[in-house]
Amino acid sequence: MLERILVNGLVTSGTYAVLAVGFSLIFGVAKIFNMAHTALYMITAFLIFVGTNQLGFPYALSAVVSVGATIGFGLICYALLFDRVKVHQTAVMIISLAVAMLGQEILLLTLSGHYRGIAPFVTGSIDILGVAVLYQHLFTVLGCLATLFGLWALLTKTNLGKAIRAVAQDSETANLMGINVSRVCLITMGISAGLAAVAAVVAAPLEPLHPGMWMLPLTMILAAVVLGGLGSIKGSVFGAIILGFAETIVVTAVPGGSFLRGAVSLAAMVLVLIARPEGLFGVVFEEERL
């Protein structure tokens, strides 16, 4: 039982982590509450589906093309929509929500509302610690880990990463130090959209695709980001891991109550936030504490 929780928890939390980190990044840097983040995930998944199943491209090729297209779409959204109303946070929230709804409707109209599936990148399963693990699951976990590691290296080892972190900490001072804040924001949006797309590449073959699939993960990644502390990348990862494992524990330990998985993990989030209002790794200035 313990092994099963471990393996399945890693799979669930890995995807959440990559999605949550992307969301957290653009929120931290550009203060954009991007409700369309999981819609980007969905768009990539459907692009891969169209590429592999309707145009007959191999998985890798259509994955690369889809990731590129999604990053382009994210950048366009940022430049044409979000950037122009950035000061009005709730307006950005609603605009991004409308973008997500638009994506859903266009998919419904063009591809109709039934479920679809992407063929797994690798098939078959292996027994680890006596638990059956699909190769696709391993692929997902390893892909998520590699992505997170790559992001960590980018943020800590490169000049661009330094600039991104500087803007996230204090965009005005960063601007005074000669960092081109608007360009950094644009690049961050590209990275954020790219992370959503990569999450789709590694995880979309696991779940049925349909035009409403952006809503459920949106709730969970918002919860993960807040649980970890807004704007903290490390926090988002930990938040995702906690929620992912909370879900898995409910499913595994109380099989009759697995429909409660969402409710239980959100209740866990509420409890943590009551105890620690700034999230696990969030920073709060003493004078702002209530």
């Binding site: 509450f33 709730t219 918002l222 919860a223 807040v226 807004l230 959100l266 209740a267 989030m269 509420v270 936030l273 009551i274 209002p277 700034e278 999230g279 969030g282 702002e288 209530l290």
Partner: peptide, 13 residues
């Protein structure tokens, strides 16, 4: 005890 987006997310739950 909460404010801003933390509050929003707790209400979401």
């Amino acid at each position: 005890r909460l404010r801003g987006f933390y509050l929003s997310l707790v209400t979401l739950a």
